[in-house]
Design a binder for these strands. Structure first.
Lengths: 110, 110
DNA sequence: ATATCGTACAACCAAATGGTTGTAGATCAG
DNA sequence: CTGATCTACAACCATTTGGTTGTACGATAT
């Protein structure tokens, strides 16, 4: 029963997207409030185009969505990507738990 | 009460390390069993040096440890890095929960 | 109507990434 | 001792990444 087998490419995109401090900050901001792309750009010491690229990376990773409103593009947090990332890490955690159990079993046999 | 404020650089290293399928596979393998660097290298269609670099990336991110045993270097999973990554994602999840609560409050006022 | 604003996108650049081969030092086996 | 094995690391290369500036275009305000 594979609920949602994340493709390797999807996992790549997710973690890659998280691997940048500016992008992590954007995710936090747009989860709490609403920001246009230029609204976000005003927050960082880099060009509008650079921020635009960061948003695009986050969008491809399903960590934010964009919605056109007038001439602005509103960026919002997308729970989907975060959930996928967490589920991924949970799998690694599960492997650790299994390992611990296995060792406990071996010790119990002694 | 900041328990373990992850530096941005640390977070970068962690997620960057996870952002590669080969490295994620290495993490899984060495969590379950013991592998030397060359033992790992035998598993992938790339050079020993390439695998060695992947292991180095994982080590810098605290996702694996290396221990010298004779002429071999044994690679083992390191729970520390994984825990840090999970804690990080948990913070983002917490922001989401706060957002949901805030919206619920607003609705309750109406 | 015109100027301004917000966005998209192309072209470019430097640095980082993910791979290679080659060399050299330890350690182990015969 | 000699040869094979495991590791480390340097040098190199192609591609990607993270930034820049410049151009174009739809939406808004005056």
């Amino acid at each position: 029963m594979v609920v949602d087998q994340l493709s390797e490419a999807e996992a790549d995109r997710l973690f890659q997207a998280f691997a940048d401090a500016t992008r992590r900050d954007i995710v936090r901001r747009v989860t709490v409030g609403e920001y246009s792309v230029s609204g976000l750009a005003a927050l960082y010491a880099m060009s509008f185009a650079a921020v635009q690229k960061h948003v695009a990376v986050l969008e491809r990773a399903s960590l934010v969505t964009k919605e056109k409103r007038g001439r602005e593009q509103i960026v919002r947090g997308n729970h989907e990507g975060l959930q996928k990332a967490r589920r991924l890490l949970d799998e690694y955690e599960a492997i650790w738990r299994q390992r611990v159990e296995r060792i406990a079993d071996i010790l119990a046999e002694a």
